[in-house]
Write a protein that binds this DNA or RNA. Structure first.
Lengths: 140, 140
DNA sequence: TCTTGCACCTCTAGCCGCTAGAGGATGTAG
DNA sequence: CTACATCCTCTAGCGGCTAGAGGTGCAAGA
């Protein structure tokens, strides 16, 4: 088994060095063995765990959700209903967020299009911001 | 001119009391006059400013962008090119965010659909998280 | 008048998920 | 042996609030 420094682990996983230490500090990553000189030394299993964490973060899972998913992964005989529920909840969040961003986009487009590029006292951007009544109320 | 307590200002603007004090502390809102007993006393202009800030926050503008927009609003003879640019930048951000969330949504749907609701060692959710190679690479 | 009880005040600390920097030790190449 | 990169720990900061402690102000009821 090849031992690896934190810097190499960072390069291979795409997770920054301080972030790796941070994940250790909050218990997402187990404390690795140390070299004679007290330097962290990672094994392939740690790299896999790091990749898992990174991917989950990219998908927007919160650290607590990832902690739960990792616990599930550690015990493969459990039902995967919990993992399913976590992923579904995240999916619902994402759908919700997309809907609200689309509403925002529409409103921003109206603001930008309506701007006559003149002076501020006739600027649609400023006007709309000052008066919520002028917009579609789609965002809440 | 009717003076108003922070609580009323909060109710009328929809901005929470501590948040109003926070906005004052970072200089978004001017320091209001105080009553004999040292309590903040707001005027209609403050309410308008609060509404502006709240609306801009709902649209996802950062505090520094709002600060810039408020400065523009305070001097109506300026060109509105800056306001326009700020709004356009925000629009680009939102569009970008929507695109990336749609990619995430697709990936989450694949994960959730593929889950056979059995045990963790065959759970598609866990598998996909563990192996980035299994997904569409659309998110980055 | 007194007291209840809410709203207000200031101040500090905490949330999330990192990121940055100080100040020092270790490891490696020339 | 000397550079120099990389590692170590520790503390503080980011944004945009939010929560709580511990105290004061104020209006209305008994």
């Amino acid at each position: 088994m090849k031992k690896i420094t934190i810097g190499e682990a960072s390069r291979k996983s795409g997770v920054k060095v301080p972030t790796i230490r941070y994940y250790e500090s909050i218990g997402l990553l187990p404390e690795p063995n140390r070299s004679e000189g007290n330097q962290r030394s990672y094994e392939p299993a740690d790299l896999r765990r790091l990749a898992f964490i990174r991917h989950a973060r990219e998908l927007g899972f919160e650290v607590e959700a990832i902690r739960a998913l990792l616990t599930l992964q550690d015990d493969p005989h459990q039902s995967c209903a919990s993992a399913d529920a976590i992923a579904k909840a995240r999916l619902v969040e994402v759908e919700q967020r997309i809907r609200s961003l689309i509403a925002l986009k529409a409103e921003l487009e109206l603001m930008v299009e309506g701007c006559g590029h003149g002076r501020v006292d006739r600027c649609r951007v400023i006007e709309v911001l000052a008066d919520h009544g002028q917009c579609s109320h789609a965002h809440h």
